[in-house]
């Protein structure tokens, strides 16, 4: 029993003043960025990972889990502010805020940037293998009205919101629809398409590279990794529109090391630091002047540079409970 107590005590980290506890996605924080911050501020950085936004929210709601920094997506950020779960740290007044691209200043999830700084952003659309899929691929009809040689070789993300958003765009129905008739059409479309879908799987890279799937819904970062291994893979910005997302750096209420946390938020808005994030995670950041520090091949990659005629990414807030109930119903029926 005593040995157990000693083990428990030694296994828990020491909470010194000079610590910073980051709670984020796995392998999302560049080690060199951490090393640089540690050297500059004399602070030891500890990183823990979550698997979903819901886990993170549940832990914060259960009463400050002891983290100093979290990295919520746009819709989650809005919820955290609405539920008073993040510290108001006046990011707009921080010295490095001048570097934030205008595009990312007045955002729906934090209109005055009082709570959060940009970390990275990307999009959810689809990728095709141009060696197999010929002709015009700029429409979602590649997925929803596929050519015969594509049927049975389609992969969709295993995420009800992403799949349904995409179907809604194809049908010209607005996101978060609360109209049951519209959602019935969404279900019909997806049920028809299901016969041609090989799998609903979020690990899309291996499927595309092996040729198992020739069309796949994809995050832009995954598509870029896939293209590295198979040059005929192309990421498509469909003309019907696509989803954008941004992860943000914020400080949960009651963070034990508030000053270190603020220092980190300011730190990641410096162009050379933001560039490290992009180089490591392969997603765009929202910081002006970071281009100069990004690997040239990456800076020019089509996956993070939409063509001029592509529509702008659509950022989607959390749907209302009514709309969410309909989405749940469509997905349950589709998967039955």
């Amino acid at each position: 029993m005593r040995a157990l107590a000693i083990l428990l005590l030694t296994a828990a980290p020491a909470f010194a003043e000079g610590d910073l506890f980051i709670y984020t996605w796995g392998e999302y924080t560049p080690p060199d960025l951490v090393a640089k911050f540690e050297a500059e501020f004399g602070v030891k950085v500890h990183i823990d990972s979550y698997d979903s936004m819901e886990t993170m929210i549940a832990k914060l709601r259960a009463g400050g889990a002891g983290y100093d920094i979290i990295v919520p997506g746009d819709a989650t950020m809005q919820v955290l502010i609405a539920e008073d779960m993040v510290e108001k740290i006046d990011v707009f007044a921080m010295p490095n805020y001048v570097n934030v691209d205008d595009k990312w200043r007045e955002v729906y999830w934090d209109p005055k940037r009082e709570y959060s700084a940009p970390w990275a952003w990307g999009s959810t659309a689809f990728a095709v293998d141009t060696a197999v899929v010929k002709g015009d691929t700029s429409s979602l009809s590649v997925l929803f009205a596929p050519a015969d040689d594509v049927k049975g070789r389609i992969n969709m993300l295993r995420d009800m919101n992403d799949v349904i958003n995409m179907a809604e765009r194809y049908l010209g129905i607005p996101r978060c629809s609360e109209n049951p008739d519209e959602m019935k059409r969404v279900l019909e479309l997806l049920e028809t398409q299901k016969a041609w879908v090989k799998s609903y799987d979020s690990e899309t890279k291996e499927l595309m590279v092996s040729g198992e799937a020739v069309v796949s819904m994809s995050w832009n970062g995954y598509a870029m990794r896939a293209r590295d291994e198979k040059p005929t893979i192309a990421y498509v910005y469909p003309r019907e529109g696509y989803t954008g997302w941004m992860d943000n750096v914020a400080v949960p209420k009651g963070a034990p090391h508030l000053d270190n946390a603020k220092a980190w938020v300011n730190f990641v808005m410096a162009p050379e630091n933001a560039a490290m994030i992009t180089n490591y995670a392969r997603y765009s950041n929202g910081i002006k002047g970071s281009e100069a520090f990004i690997e040239p091949a990456l800076a020019a990659a089509p996956e993070i540079n939409p063509p001029a005629d592509a529509p702008a990414p659509e950022f989607i807030p959390t749907c209302s409970p009514e709309a969410t109930a309909l989405i749940d119903k469509v997905w349950t029926k589709l998967m039955n």
Binding site: E54, N161, K198, S199, I327, D328, M335
Partner: peptide, 25 residues
């Protein structure tokens, strides 16, 4: 079923998980 079956069906485990996550019920 999710990975080897291509994820085309829901099991009780997914359904319950879904309610505590995306569906928020």
């Amino acid at each position: 079923p999710d990975i080897l079956g291509g994820g085309k069906t829901l099991m009780l485990g997914n359904l319950i998980g879904m309610q505590f996550q995306g569906s928020r019920n």
